[in-house]
Amino acid sequence: MILTYLQLALSFVRVSLSAYGGGIAAISLIRHEVVVIRGWLSIEEFIRVVTLAEMTPGPLIVNTATFIGFRLAGVPGSLVATAAVLSPALLLLTVLLLVARRLKSQRKLQVPIQDAVKPAVLALMLMAIISFGRHAVTDLSTAVIAALALLVLLLSRRKVHPVLVVIAGGIAGLFLL
């Protein structure tokens, strides 16, 4: 049992350290760990888990880790997997904040860093749109739903909670897909 916890922790720490661009990017890493390396789930089961994690509220990485941890070792397993997938990023951010505090006395270094990282952030974001959209927008109906949703979001700024648009998309899916 202890071994399961350790393997869970190790696998999800590894996933976390190379998971760039949010959930979708992490999925292939998690599949590699869970299906290929450990053999905890079959690929069919894994696909079902990911579909489920996408439709459950909250971060995709957290959902997938929680589910797989629960499958293997119950509630403690889910907590171990989730803590493992979150702690590297939070530790890294804490260290970066300490470094940033050191730099505070030298603002001339801080601003160039903030500005210089922006092109990379934009590139990674575009990548995330494409890798998510490739799975979600697969035919004309889903393309229409996505286009209308974007239009509503752009035009109704500050007035409509974004989740309403997602729920509307789901209801449209019930009738159109």
Partner: peptide
């Protein structure tokens, strides 16, 4: 429902 919602999530992203 989830397929439709996922298309809208693409717009949200």
């Amino acid at each position: 429902f989830m397929k439709g919602a996922a298309a809208a999530v693409t717009a949200q992203i």
